[in-house]
């Protein structure tokens, strides 16, 4: 299987504290991966590095068939290259309607002049409607997204992530604040998405991870502690030690 994203030997420290320490990670073009780890393991920083928010002190991050380095690209260039991110806390544009939020995320030309001339085509409208239906907000398209409940905002953000049509989805705790039924729906969407693209899910909830039924990477103190199926890693001595204390 070819590699879509390759992170190798990456380290970053904040004021002497090593948040990420010689981390190496790979993911293929159509693969689901769960990343777990205790608090402070560096999960969010790991995503920050891939999306360009944080520049590492050391190491390489290579992307796609042509192995482009992501380190010299800005956040927006990385996003345009095909990496979408969903934040831990839902961050939607609360002052704008659900439809506008989705339209904003929809894959289209991003340059100011193109956007200035932009007129949504029929297919754009259809895509937005399709996505809204998928995330259960088809009745709320004209509502301000700030009026939505916490769970609905989570959905909207997942919808925005899908609207970008990225090759790699980075999803930070997608199921937080959702009812069991909603979680199931989220799982379905993510599993569906992983058929055609790479999905990295950060999650605390082991039940959720189990339902994703995918390879698991365990992070600890900024580096990979173990990798494999959920059953495999939960048997791992080191993982047990880290999670349960010695």
């Amino acid at each position: 299987m070819s590699t879509l994203l390759e992170v190798s030997g990456v380290s970053v420290s904040f004021d002497g504290f090593k948040a990420i320490n010689n981390l190496t990670f790979q993911i293929g073009p159509a693969e689901m991966r769960a990343v777990i780890g205790p608090n402070g393991a560096g999960k969010t920083t790991f995503m920050d590095i891939i999306t360009g928010k944080t520049k590492p002190d050391d190491g390489h991050v290579l992307w796609g068939d042509k192995s482009v380095s992501l380190l010299s690209m800005t956040e927006s260039q990385i996003a345009q290259a095909g990496i979408g991110r969903k934040f831990q806390r839902p961050t939607v544009f609360e002052d704008q309607s659900v439809g506008e939020n989705l339209m904003l995320a929809l894959k289209n030309k991003r340059s100011p002049f193109a956007v200035l001339r932009f007129k949504p085509s029929q297919s754009d409208h259809e895509k937005v409607a399709q996505l809204a239906k998928e995330i259960g907000l088809e009745q709320a398209l004209d509502r301000k997204s700030g009026e939505l409940s916490h769970g609905q905002k989570q959905w909207l953000e997942i919808g925005m992530l899908l609207a970008q049509d990225p090759q790699l989805l980075l999803v930070d705790e997608p199921a937080a604040g959702m009812t069991p039924a909603e979680r199931e729906h989220t799982t379905d969407i993510l599993v569906e998405a992983a058929k055609t693209r790479a999905v990295v899910v950060i999650e605390h909830d082991m039940e959720f991870v189990r339902r994703l039924n995918c390879k698991v990477t365990v992070l600890h103190e900024g580096s990979v502690l173990a990798e494999g199926s959920l059953d495999h890693v939960t048997q791992d001595e080191k993982v047990i030690e880290v999670y349960l204390g010695r």
């Binding site: 999306t51 928010k53 800005t74 956040e75 927006s76 260039q77 996003a79 345009q80 979408g84 991110r85 934040f87 961050t91 544009f93 609360e94 002052d95 704008q96 506008e100 339209m103 904003l104 995320a105 991003r110 340059s111 100011p112 956007v115 200035l116 932009f118 007129k119 949504p120 925005m160 970008q164």
Partner: peptide, 30 residues
């Protein structure tokens, strides 16, 4: 300028510019 999608983007920049970056818009250019 502010009515269409452009307006939507700049209001989004006002409210959360780093989120707009992660959507792939070059905030600086806007």
């Amino acid at each position: 300028v502010v009515s269409g999608k452009f307006g939507s983007v700049i209001r989004a920049i006002r409210d959360d510019e780093s989120r707009v970056r992660f959507l792939g818009y070059s905030v600086e250019a806007y």
